[in-house]
Amino acid sequence: MKWLAALILSISLILPAYATEGVKEGAPAPTFVLPDENNRNVDIGIFMDRPTIIYFTHNACFYCTQLILYLKRAQAKFGEKNLRIIGINIMAKDQNLIKAYKEELGFIFPMFAGNREDVLRAYRINYVPVIVFVDSKKTVRKVVGHYIHEDELHRHIKNIMK
């Protein structure tokens, strides 16, 4: 019976899964009022009136900046009327960093300052890049927490456009 006791003990010590309030595939996309580059406080929910990509990034992530080209090409391919793209900079607390980031990288999409505990917890952002795919009903369909190739990006976009 020793092996059984050992098995029960080892199972009991595995980190338990907690029901968290964070974003889950199939759940409504959390919305927040966040500052943009002009320091206007904007409800990001109003941007989710069509299939939307929420792109979480920060200034030290080279992999993230490489994705910007893919995002631009995706919007050109699928059309602005069919696909919304917004960025959330998790390093930014106010307009200044957003403004500098957009200017430097030619980030043409709306971007918001997301260095806020409630935002980071709601979207479970412990690293970047994170790309959240939201359908037109504001439901999270896919969360990708790593660098993404263009064909995978397009596949997820097509899914939220269905």
Binding site: S10, G22, Y63, C64, N126, Y127
Partner: peptide, 21 residues
């Protein structure tokens, strides 16, 4: 035994999120 490793990402190192995710 309980956590998973990801390499191609830039971490924030937040304990509570790591415990949950």
């Amino acid at each position: 035994d309980s956590l998973n490793y990801i390499h191609e990402a830039c971490g924030r190192g937040v304990s509570i999120l790591m415990f949950e995710e």
